[in-house]
C-alpha cells in the first residue's frame, strides 16, 4: 500500500510548491496594487491613506536613516531584555513550583487570577514609577510574556514527573543523569513553545508601551509621525513593525525547529 501513498502524495505536493510561492507573491502584489489604487481612485483621500508606492519609497528612505535604526534598536533591546527576564523568571519559578505538588496546588488559584490580567492595565503604574524610560516597556513586556513561558514550563515539568518516576524506578539513574536525559529533553519542547509565544507577545507590548507611554522606540515614532502629520512616514513605520514581527516569527520557528529537530513529536499548534 505504501507504494501508492507515496506515488499519490509526495511528488504532487513537491511539484505544487513553486506554484504556491508564486501565488503567495501574487497575493502580496495584489494587496499592494489595491492599496495603490484606493487613494489614487479617491476612495480614501491620499492625505489619510497615501498610495503604497509613496509609503514604500518612504520605508526605503527610512532604511537609510540612522534615526530609524536607532528606534528599531531601542524597540529590539526592550523586546530582547524583557523576553530574557521573563524567560529566566519563568524558568526558575516554573521548575520550583512545578516540581512540588504542594506549591503547584497552592499557587494555582493565584496564577489563574493573575494570568488573565491584561498587562496594559499596568500602564498607569509603569508611567508613575518609571515615566517614559525603557523600564516602563520592560515592566509591561515582562509581565505579559512571563505567563506564556511559565505555564508551558509547568506543563513540561508535569510531563517529566511521570517519565522521571518510571525511568528512575526501572533504571535507577543518578540525579545528574536524570536531569540530562529526562528532565531537559522532556521540558524543552514545552519551553520552546512558551518562548515562541512570548516572543510575539513581547513585541506587541514593546510597541504598545512606546505608543501609549512614549518610551523610546518605533511605537513612539509612529505616534509622533501621526500627531506631526507625517502620514507616509507613519505608514512606513507600521510596515516596519510588521516586518519585524514576521522576522521574529520566522526566527523563533527556526530556533524551535533547530532545537527540537531530534525530538520525535513535533508539537502541534493547538497546544497553547
Amino acid at each position: 500500500m505504501t507504494a501508492q501513498v507515496t506515488a499519490q502524495g509526495t511528488p504532487q505536493s513537491r511539484r505544487t510548491v513553486p506554484v504556491q510561492q508564486f501565488l503567495g507573491l501574487a497575493g502580496i502584489l495584489g494587496f499592494l496594487l489595491t492599496w495603490e489604487l484606493i487613494p489614487r481612485a479617491g476612495i480614501i483621500e491620499p492625505r489619510f491613506l497615501p498610495p503604497a508606492s509613496e509609503v514604500m519609497a518612504e520605508l526605503f528612505r527610512a532604511f537609510g536613516l540612522t534615526a530609524f535604526w536607532l528606534s528599531v534598536g531601542e524597540t529590539m533591546i526592550a523586546w530582547f531584555v524583557g523576553l530574557l527576564m521573563a524567560v529566566a523568571a519563568a524558568l526558575v519559578l516554573g521548575f520550583l513550583i512545578g516540581s512540588s505538588a504542594f506549591l503547584a496546588r497552592a499557587t494555582s488559584s493565584s496564577v489563574e487570577f493573575l494570568r488573565p490580567i491584561p498587562s496594559v492595565a499596568l500602564i498607569p503604574l509603569a508611567v508613575l514609577m518609571f515615566g517614559v524610560k525603557i523600564e516602563s516597556s520592560l515592566m509591561l513586556i515582562v509581565y505579559a510574556s512571563f505567563w506564556q513561558v511559565f505555564i508551558q514550563v509547568l506543563y513540561g515539568v508535569a510531563d517529566i514527573d511521570l517519565v522521571a518516576n518510571n525511568t528512575a524506578k526501572s533504571y535507577g539513574l543518578g540525579r545528574m543523569a536524570r536531569i540530562r536525559y529526562v528532565v531537559f529533553p522532556t521540558a524543552l519542547p514545552y519551553l520552546m513553545t512558551g518562548v515562541r509565544l512570548a516572543a510575539s507577545v513581547a513585541l506587541i507590548l514593546a510597541i504598545t508601551a512606546e505608543l501609549v507611554i512614549g518610551s523610546p522606540g518605533l511605537g513612539r515614532e509612529i505616534a509622533l509621525a501621526q500627531s506631526g502629520g507625517a502620514i507616509s512616514g507613519m505608514y512606513a513605520l507600521v510596515l516596519a513593525t510588521g516586518l519585524i514581527g514576521v522576522i521574529i516569527n520566522m526566527l523563533m520557528r527556526f530556533i524551535e525547529k533547530k532545537t527540537l529537530s531530534w525530538h520525535s513529536s513535533v508539537r502541534s499548534e493547538v497546544v497553547l
Binding site: S200, I204, I207, L211, I222, Q226, V238, G242, L243, G245
Partner: peptide, 11 residues
Amino acid sequence: RAVPPPVLVPV
C-alpha cells in the same frame, strides 16, 4: 498577523 495590533490605533 505579525503587525503588532496596537499600531492600528493611530492608523
